[in-house]
Design a protein around this nucleic acid. Sequence first.
DNA 1: GTCTATAGTGGGATAGAC
DNA 2: GTCTATCCCACTATAGAC
Lengths: 235, 235
Amino acid sequence: MTRDETGTAAPVPNPAPRPGKAELTRQSIVDAAMRLFLAGGYDRTTMRAIADEAGVSLGNAYYYFGSKEHLLQAFYDRVQVEHAAAAEGVLVREREFPARLQGLVEAWIDIAEPYHAFAGRFFRTAAEPSSPLSPFSAESAGPRQASTELFRQAVEGSDLKLAADLRRQLPELLWLMHMGVVLFWVHDDSPGQQRTRALVGRAVPLVDKLARLTRLPVVRGVVKDVVDLVDAIRA
Amino acid sequence: MTRDETGTAAPVPNPAPRPGKAELTRQSIVDAAMRLFLAGGYDRTTMRAIADEAGVSLGNAYYYFGSKEHLLQAFYDRVQVEHAAAAEGVLVREREFPARLQGLVEAWIDIAEPYHAFAGRFFRTAAEPSSPLSPFSAESAGPRQASTELFRQAVEGSDLKLAADLRRQLPELLWLMHMGVVLFWVHDDSPGQQRTRALVGRAVPLVDKLARLTRLPVVRGVVKDVVDLVDAIRA
DNA sequence: GTCTATAGTGGGATAGAC
DNA sequence: GTCTATCCCACTATAGAC
């Protein structure tokens, strides 16, 4: 609906970087919006100002973006794409599971940092269940899968030994953990989001410990229950 | 700021039911808003309609409520108060920890059910970090503590045996779990929110199992780490 | 299909008189 | 505390140019 659904289109963050004229206009609007949002904040930036800055008419801006909030989707996409790129470096560099996981999450924090000031606005929109920006919505299934895929790779290429069922599910659980980090990050006003970084630095070794603990016979039962529960939720 | 801060005022959901003229006007506006929100949804209800329904001018409505979203605070407060009342019954009736916990969470789902239709809107507002409605904000510290207190009682009065440090922290962790349930609930469109109820029915025994597992010597170390991490986060 | 220009409408929020 | 009048801006509508 919000994206072009041309038959077998792949669910990637960006529709496809074919540089048609329309795509250029679209991009100039996004760029203008990003500049103004960063400079003056979301609220104080009017659609008219964005259209002016982009050198297009107001009507044209609305031709490409159904609402002011739709422009925030661009932020989401941009972070997504940059994170995937940065993740590649991390996953090539690191082999230990904790380092891979921490690198992934820290890369996200680095990339999202410039947008922290108006991330609250984005978050607000994303929180609404009916919003296509909601991380749990059908519309964002593509980006969500792309993000989960990064965590899958972090697990796959590592030395982590796990029961098969948990290993299968772990990427999604890690993605969920990542959402929790994002929640914390949005509320984190410390300079450079240091508190979030500290949290990640402490939480990752813990996750690693916990993951390895699941192999103990005494806890296998509960782990099985958790796995079953998560499966039931997804259905 | 949003509430009267008269010196040693207790951080309770409702300021105090002294029936001055102002309080009556305020209440009539809230009542009107609730009626209209329930009948027509948040978006389709205008501030003008609310003011009309309450028999006051638009300006007067804004004298009492700084924004349309501030009216949602009333929903929050109402659920809070009703939940506390319902909780009392549960905590008197049940003695086993799982039953107490499940009773508490299910009572919340029962009470919040009428508001589910526009809870998404509320959630959206609450998600914004700068919003006083955010469950993590300083302004909602009172309600949050009141809610956490219910979980504290669920633990206290039960047969659950735990290490002292974890027992001290458990109420807040359970509150956090409850927030997770609320997140699920907001996205749950099944009739009567059956899926959320099913989730709770399965998750509570799991939490119970996990809590009891923490006493095993092998997992004590990790539990200690988790407790320390949570302490660090709160600071 | 892409874009402009212009003129609305609706509703959240505010100013200032009383 | 209450009102009336007004502002502002997201969004829509339309009619037409390329």
